[in-house]
């Protein structure tokens, strides 16, 4: 395990929509869980039989003072096990391990105004941001797009808490989120934060750039749900371990399953903590992270094993 961890117990597990389950967790030793800033995530470690699953989830903002942490987990349609495990097996009394909160999607506290945009489960960090901004009386507006109100987690909550600062867009009611129009009328010094499906993030950022928003004012939660791929052979040169990375397994998980300690933090291709040097690759490295530069990716000397993999026969790492 990399970094500080907290042993927790699930004290409430509730399906808040047909596909979203909310977990409320407290420390097993009764200690107060540390506070955190909006946009923070935690990595959940779950034991599923022989297999250890680690997934990163944004922390909800509604329990800042409550001494408990909450996450909302969407059942991913092509889950490699993590979200399905939470939905099928994690209930009240279940014991888990959390990493301390880490923030890779922070608010810019110098902004004059904040525009928050969320799609679907992307509301989890965005809702925490609204909480924090409301608490310090900062100027913000929240735009939240969902398929239908039943599936949109927290719709009622948010409207009740922030009133006119929240706009809801329900696609089943033909309500469209026109980001372009919203971005047209913002005062200079505004910052934009977006979290949702990859396609939505891309569209929102493209609109902002086309309207002349500077890069430094744009913030997106670029967490990737690590996806699987074709299996390949893995050799760790220093440890002398040879194993296989399965199609539902990430490279990092295969390293861990072989009993080798490797550093990590976000497990979503963002933070750079798990970077490993490549000795050789018999095939093409499939870089899926947002961390390495284009030049670094092309050079092929480094890989982020939490999301990236090999399209080919064998990968040899200096580990």
């Amino acid at each position: 395990m990399s970094g500080e961890t907290i042993a927790v117990r699930v004290v409430a597990a509730e399906a808040i929509t047909p596909t979203i389950k909310r977990l409320r967790m407290v420390a097993r030793d009764g200690a107060r869980l540390p506070p955190y800033s909006a946009g923070s995530h935690t990595v959940l470690t779950m034991a599923s039989g022989e297999r250890v699953i680690r997934n990163a989830y944004s922390l909800l903002g509604s329990t800042l003072a409550g001494g408990a942490y909450e996450v909302a987990v969407l059942r991913a349609p092509r889950s490699r096990g993590g979200s399905a495990f939470v939905h099928d097996h994690v209930g009240e009394g279940h014991e888990l391990t959390l990493s301390v909160p880490i923030n890779l999607f922070p608010l810019n506290r110098r902004a004059r105004h904040h525009v928050l945009v969320a799609g679907g489960i992307g509301i989890t960090p965005i809702g925490a941001m609204a909480d924090e901004l409301a608490k310090v009386n900062a100027s913000f507006e929240l735009h939240y797009a969902v398929r239908n109100e039943a599936r949109g987690a927290f719709c009622g909550d948010l409207a009740g808490r922030y009133g006119e600062r929240v706009r809801l867009y329900v696609s089943e009611r033909q309500e469209r989120l026109h980001v372009h129009d919203i971005l047209m009328r913002q005062p200079l010094g505004t910052h934009l934060y977006v979290c949702g499906p990859e396609g939505m993030i891309g569209n929102v950022l493209a609109d902002a750039r086309a309207l002349g928003w500077p890069e430094t004012s744009l913030h997106a939660e670029r967490f990737l749900a690590a996806a699987g791929g074709a299996p390949f052979a893995l050799r760790l040169a220093k440890s002398g371990v040879a194993t296989t990375v399965g199609e539902d397994q990430t490279l990092l998980e295969a390293i861990e399953a072989a009993g080798i300690e490797a550093p990590f933090s976000c497990r979503g291709g963002v933070c750079g903590e798990c970077e490993l040097p490549v000795v050789s690759a018999d095939g093409e490295i499939d870089h899926r992270d947002h961390y390495l530069s284009a030049e670094e990716k092309a050079a092929g000397c480094k890989i982020m094993p939490c999301v990236s993999r090999l399209r080919g026969r064998e990968l040899v790492l200096d580990l």
């Binding site: 500080e4 540390p34 955190y36 301390v100 880490i102 933090s265 933070c271």
Partner: peptide, 11 residues
């Protein structure tokens, strides 16, 4: 700087 940007709570 790169090291400190990843500095963790409790560490």
């Amino acid at each position: 700087l790169k090291f400190l940007l990843n500095l963790q709570q409790g560490r």
